Amino acid sequence: MSVRNIRLFGDPVLRAPSAPIERIDDGVHALVRDLLDTVEPPGRAGVAAPQIGVGLRAFSYNVDGVIGYILNPVLVETAGEPVPTGEGCLSIPGVWHDALRHPYARVVGIDLDGDELVLEGEGLMAQALQHETDHLDGMLFVSRLPADARREAMRQIRESDWF
């Protein structure tokens, strides 16, 4: 168990769709422990497996003091008109913009026992569910920005000290 380093914008693992987890083995158990440890520090609402270099469909979340995980999540429902929502990403440090997000989201996946797990929520939870499932599809939040905001975000990335 450990807090893993976060992969940064430009790392190919962040742009590749993640593979489904086909067998829950010791490696998947270790992945979940690492995801939970990595999402625990303050200021982290979610961590997707690709952000720690693993191309599998899994993420952890830390919303309103509740920490958890889901395997093979599928975004099955969103509701409400998308609204501009302030958003950042651990993989793009220091960049913060309004992305369009639905105020409600629901994902369905499984837990480590293979049992169905449903996560749903409004506000930050809805945003986290949408953001993390985007990661698993190889999409970063800057791709959801309007053209002018995307240009500004890319400028900020190019000028950052980490890029």
Rank of each mutant, 00 (worst) to 15 (best):
M1H: 13
V3P: 00
I6E: 05
G10Q: 11
D11F: 09
D11S: 11
V13R: 10
V13Q: 08
L14T: 07
A16I: 12
P20Q: 13
I21R: 00
R23A: 14
D26V: 14
D26A: 15
D26K: 15
V28F: 10
V32N: 04
R33C: 07
D34R: 12
D34M: 05
L36D: 08
D37F: 13
T38G: 00
P41H: 07
R44C: 13
A45D: 03
V47H: 02
P50Q: 05
P50T: 06
Q51H: 04
V54A: 07
G55Y: 11
L56S: 00
L56V: 02
L56G: 00
R57L: 10
F59M: 05
F59W: 08
S60P: 00
N62R: 03
N62T: 00
V63N: 04
D64K: 04
V66L: 08
I67N: 00
G68M: 06
I70A: 04
L71H: 03
L75R: 08
L75S: 04
L75D: 09
E77N: 05
E77D: 12
T78W: 10
A79L: 12
A79C: 04
P82K: 13
T85V: 13
G86K: 14
G88Q: 10
G88K: 04
S91C: 06
V95P: 03
V95H: 04
H97A: 13
L100I: 11
H102R: 12
R106S: 00
V107I: 05
V108A: 08
V108M: 03
G109P: 00
D111C: 06
D111T: 10
D111G: 03
L117I: 10
L117S: 10
V118N: 05
G121F: 07
E122K: 14
E122D: 14
L124I: 12
M125E: 09
A128Q: 07
L129K: 02
L129A: 04
E132D: 01
H135L: 03
D137E: 15
G138E: 11
L140M: 14
F141R: 06
F141Q: 06
S143A: 13
P146L: 12
A147Q: 14
I157G: 01
I157F: 03
E159M: 11
E159F: 12
S160K: 07
D161S: 15
W162H: 08
